[in-house]
């Protein structure tokens, strides 16, 4: 059953990606991207990372895509879009590298010795049982990875200031 579901959502994700890359209208491609995000969230659930799936839906699909939509609307790009695909040579080059990247990554990732550790799944299950789904993630996050966490908050602060400064109308 879960395999079937996985294939459905996997194909949805790839379709969304393709749609996003090929649509001329930015809004259409944005919506296709949102579709990909939802299918990914579903995949996360299948992979047992429920909290991550939730976060994915809230943060990505919700916040970032809305931001994109807002910017598209703000810049009034929705309608008189011209075909903005680069020259033929570039298309070929683009998809060639894409294919190559994909192939190489699959080779890297799927070689036997690539994944060393085993049994991660059981460990997660034990953690969830002990501190429910959110705690399983929160505990290591705030104990082992506290410093990176604080750094990301600083990063976000900087991003906010930068965004405000850049986008502010010159008075």
């Amino acid at each position: 059953m879960s395999d079937l579901l996985w294939w459905v959502f996997a194909s949805l994700a790839i379709g969304g990606g393709l749609g996003m890359v090929t649509r001329k209208n930015p809004i259409a491609s944005l919506l296709f991207l949102v579709l990909t995000f939802f299918s990914l969230a579903a995949l996360y659930v299948l992979l047992g990372a429920h909290f991550i799936a939730a976060i994915q839906v809230i943060v990505y699909a919700g916040a970032i895509m809305v931001l994109f939509l807002f910017v598209i609307m703000l810049l009034n790009l929705g309608h008189d879009y011209r075909p903005d695909v680069r020259g033929g040579a570039w298309i070929v080059a683009g998809f060639a590298t894409a294919g190559l990247t994909g192939w190489l990554l699959t080779r890297v990732l799927t070689t036997e010795g690539a994944v060393v550790a085993q049994g991660g799944e059981l460990e997660i299950a034990a953690a969830v049982r002990e501190w429910n789904a959110v705690g399983a993630i929160a505990l290591p996050l705030f104990r082992d990875y506290l410093v990176p966490f604080e750094l990301t908050s600083v990063l976000l602060l900087v991003a906010i200031i930068g965004a405000v400064l850049l986008a502010k109308r010159r008075v």
Partner: peptide, 20 residues
Amino acid sequence: LNTYAFAVVLGALILLGFML
């Protein structure tokens, strides 16, 4: 910008190629 992106990807690919 695209050409630079392309250059970056190309570099990465070559690196990957070597790793393999």
